[in-house]
Amino acid sequence: MKLESHLRERREAGHKLLVPYVTGGLGAGWRDVLRAVAAAGADAIEVGIPFSDPVMDGKTIQEASQRALEIGATPDAIIADLRGIDIDIPIAVMTYYNPVFHAGHERFASALADAGVDAAIIPDLPFDELDGWGDAADRARVETVLLAAPTTPEERLRLICERSRGFVYAVALMGVTGERANLPEQALTMGRRCSKVTDRPVLLGVGISTPEQAVQAAGAADGVVVGSALVRRLLQGGGPDEAGAFVAGLRAALDAAT
């Protein structure tokens, strides 16, 4: 339970949690981006394993996924790249269910564990379909982070929070990933709803793109996941330095607010 225990520790030390998302295999130096993001104060990193048909993702992450696939990114290569990487914060991979199913639950879970990956987020594998993967992941000690949505009814929310490992990914709005001009009120409601039924770390994600939005969201949850705003900078040619500076900005804003 490395991801969850680490996040709990950081929370108990009084920090708001910051988990940036980076598309794996996006350019030869993508691991330098992870290093920069970790050095800039991330509490964990979400690494995207690109899939051809990412239905939970908006244009930015779609484009990043496609670009990574075009230059040869594969699940195996990304997991191999993560093996033994010199980063001292937990790593969670985010991918879709088909690559996991195709590889086989046991094989995928043990590949992650062998590479030192702590957790997995599979947004098209909801609570009710979790069985095969969930059991294999538990056995391999890979934490499966579940998503809770604004439309999730109360009883189901409780079950999701209970079954989730690592943290609860509270989807901040109705929609796919991508930057938004404003954080909707719904996001705050969502953070509070989850926090009320679990003591697991609750992170709000989807549509959180600026330091201001991160601070606002962290007011109603334990922290935030920030993806598209970071990946857009990488797509526009930004490298590790720019990624690090952006994450440092988020970190500073979150720290200043606590």
Partner: peptide, 9 residues
């Protein structure tokens, strides 16, 4: 039913 949680309900 392999869909994002938002759609399940």
């Amino acid at each position: 039913r392999f869909v994002p949680e938002s759609l399940v309900p």
